[in-house]
């Protein structure tokens, strides 16, 4: 279970999150929608441990453990995974080398043995096939020269390989064509599991037709201002965020 309690954070002295509280139960798929600049990516970065942010109050617990006390790599080993809104290009690092290093680093952190090369290759090949990623792409440097949609698929491939416990998807649907959206949604749905939680950040109801959320949260000005069922996303689609523009607290 993910518990974000009264989280306030700023970057370069500018407050962005303002007493945000959010609970995502184990096995739950939670969608977060909200206007541009409301702090969705900031929240996802802080969950993953990006160093640029200053948490001024509050806490983040994963199954009761204080995430904020952990380095990003330790969070990853505990099962936190962020699919970046803008995946980073890493010239000179072959995708396969990176995947293997990441997988084995997490296994080592959990006291497990390294994966053998054949097992590793089999796992990657399987995940790549189901996400319709060409093997040629895996031979390229990580994300370098990938199209926007290819980068997003690569994020989901990493997620599938690392089988995290908490998946935060930051606008994984943006930049995907209609077919790719379905492929990626299928990939995410295949990972749905009673032991795994998802935070799906999106601007579009369309994604939520493919990945049915259990709960929908609305974020505005650095906090969660409304929560509801899937119907909330439909209402937002119709009316936009004007009802929440001046909201000060959860409805």
């Amino acid at each position: 279970m993910l518990e974000v309690k009264n989280l306030s954070a700023s970057v370069n002295g500018q407050p962005i999150l303002d007493g945000l509280s959010l609970t995502v139960r184990t096995g739950e798929v939670a969608a977060i929608m909200g206007p541009n600049g409301s702090g969705k990516s900031t929240l996802s970065y802080i969950i993953a441990g990006k160093p640029d942010y200053e948490v001024t109050s509050g806490e983040i617990l994963l199954d009761g453990e204080d995430l904020l006390a952990l380095a990003p790599e330790a969070r990853a080993a505990k099962g936190v995974f962020l699919a970046f809104q803008y995946p980073i290009e890493i010239p000179g690092v072959a995708t396969m080398t990176f995947l293997k290093a990441a997988l084995n680093a997490q296994r080592r952190a959990r006291g497990e043995a390294d994966l053998t090369t054949p097992d590793f290759r089999r796992a990657v090949r399987g995940a790549a096939q189901s996400l319709k990623i060409e093997e040629e792409m895996l031979r390229r440097p990580l994300n370098v020269g990938f199209s926007g949609g290819e980068k997003k698929r690569m994020e989901v491939l990493q997620m599938a390989l690392l089988s995290p416990q908490l998946c935060v998807l930051d606008e994984t649907d943006s930049g995907l064509d209609i077919d790719a959206l379905r492929v990626v949604a299928d990939g995410v749905n295949a990972l749905r599991d009673p032991a795994r939680s998802f935070v799906v950040i999106t601007h579009y109801q369309r994604l939520l037709e493919h990945i049915q959320p259990d709960v929908v949260h609305v974020m505005a000005r650095g906090r969660i201002v409304a929560s509801g069922g899937p119907e909330l996303a439909l209402e937002l689609e119709r009316n936009g965020y004007r009802d929440y523009a001046n909201a000060n607290a959860a409805a």
């Binding site: 441990g49 790599e73 980073i88 000179g92 990441a102 690392l162």
Partner: peptide
């Protein structure tokens, strides 16, 4: 810093992430 964080967010310890980026630079 962005690249470093990306690698660490995937579980690579800081020193290993640094070494990976430096090796790429050297390569």
């Amino acid at each position: 810093a962005q690249q470093l964080f990306y690698l660490r967010s995937r579980g690579l310890p800081e020193a290993e992430a640094e070494a990976m980026l430096l090796e790429a630079f050297a390569a």
